[in-house]
Design a protein around this nucleic acid. Structure first.
Lengths: 192, 192
DNA sequence: TTAATTCTGTACCGATTGGTAGGAAACTAG
DNA sequence: CTAGTTTCCTACCAATCGGTACAGAATTAA
């Protein structure tokens, strides 16, 4: 029954281009023209394939978590609590200060999109962050090799805070090597 | 010789209103209408008194550093290195999670204003951050009471990273008490 | 070939953006 | 009072914002 004219672009590729643009310029700093130019399609095609700007961003955020952000899930699978935290911090450094990607973290950026049209975006980003921290807390509750002077919830929040700080530092221009040193010092302090 | 019609508003008060709005909604999320409404003046008055949006933001940023951000300079005057770091972290928690002020840090927010019209704003914010960290590094170089396993530059960068993270956490909705606990855990880890 | 369907491209929509022109209003100096 | 100066207010500007109407092009099913 259906048929119809076939799409002249690959949806996943276009989504990756949109991710790059949102990541680099933020939700509010990205215009539909920026998006259509980067994606190589026209506005009606964008709307037909991805919905409006908000919905496109939601899809982009999901793709970010599944792609560049996938290291977090891997890290939680590490055998020891120490290693979980190490891989989270070092993975954050690699993600937010990568050579071929925009500096900073899409999710952290989105928390700071606080204009009138960005409520949904901010809410989504905060929900994602909350879920990630909850997963980390549950993982740390299972660990037996961590300094016992603090509860897992606070430790998870501290690790989250440190990776947030690393993202800000990268967004502000700090390079990968320096961030690596800062992260290692943080790890040494937290895990001792 | 001059004279002229007197101003019908107080410039400093208006600047404080502008600070509140920029702090809460970010540079890109704040429109001139938002500003003039909050400041209680019309656009031509705003332009005559403060220049364009960029220049107004620069004045607001300076006022932020002199007002809510003044605790940093105070902290650097503390007698011991430990106390300097403690006051910086606890001061950051109080600033970014205050009851009567927007949550988050104006300076950290501004680093994430990466739209096309926000280059100058981002540059200013980064310059301010760099200067602050340099002052902290110089202060820590003088300290004799800190764990000697790391150089002052990396320690200053780590403290900066932690306060950045605290700002993000506050912007994402974490409350003051929880942030205080996270900050104390971080202090314990870094200063031991 | 024809009908039905789906996508593409142009051209447009109202609303809002940052910014300004120009005259009335309010003050000081003479 | 008058001249000069500065601010205030209304109304407006071009440009851009996110979003869409509509017609033609490309496909499948019959």
């Amino acid at each position: 029954m259906p048929g119809g004219r076939p799409r002249s672009f690959d949806a996943d590729t276009a989504l990756d281009r949109a991710l790059e643009v949102f990541w680099r310029h933020g939700y509010e700093g990205t215009s539909l023209t920026d998006l259509t130019t980067a994606m190589g399609i026209n506005k009606p095609s964008l709307y037909a394939a991805f919905g409006n700007k908000e919905e496109l961003f939601a899809k982009v955020l999901a793709r970010y978590l599944d792609g560049p952000g996938a290291y977090t899930a891997d890290a939680l699978a590490a055998p020891t609590g120490r290693e979980v935290v190490e891989r989270l911090v070092r993975g954050a450094v690699d993600l937010v200060a990568g050579e071929d990607t925009p500096h900073g973290c899409l999710c952290v950026n989105s928390v700071h999109a606080c204009g009138p049209d960005a409520h949904a975006v901010r809410r989504d980003a905060i929900a994602v962050r909350k879920a990630g921290e909850a997963a980390l807390r549950r993982r740390l509750e299972q660990a037996t090799d961590l300094p016992s002077r603090h509860d897992p919830a606070t430790l998870a929040a501290l690790v989250h805070t440190i990776t947030d700080g690393i993202a800000v530092q990268a967004a502000a221009g700090r390079g990968h090597d320096e961030l690596r040193r800062i992260g290692d010092l943080a790890l040494h302090a937290v895990l001792t």
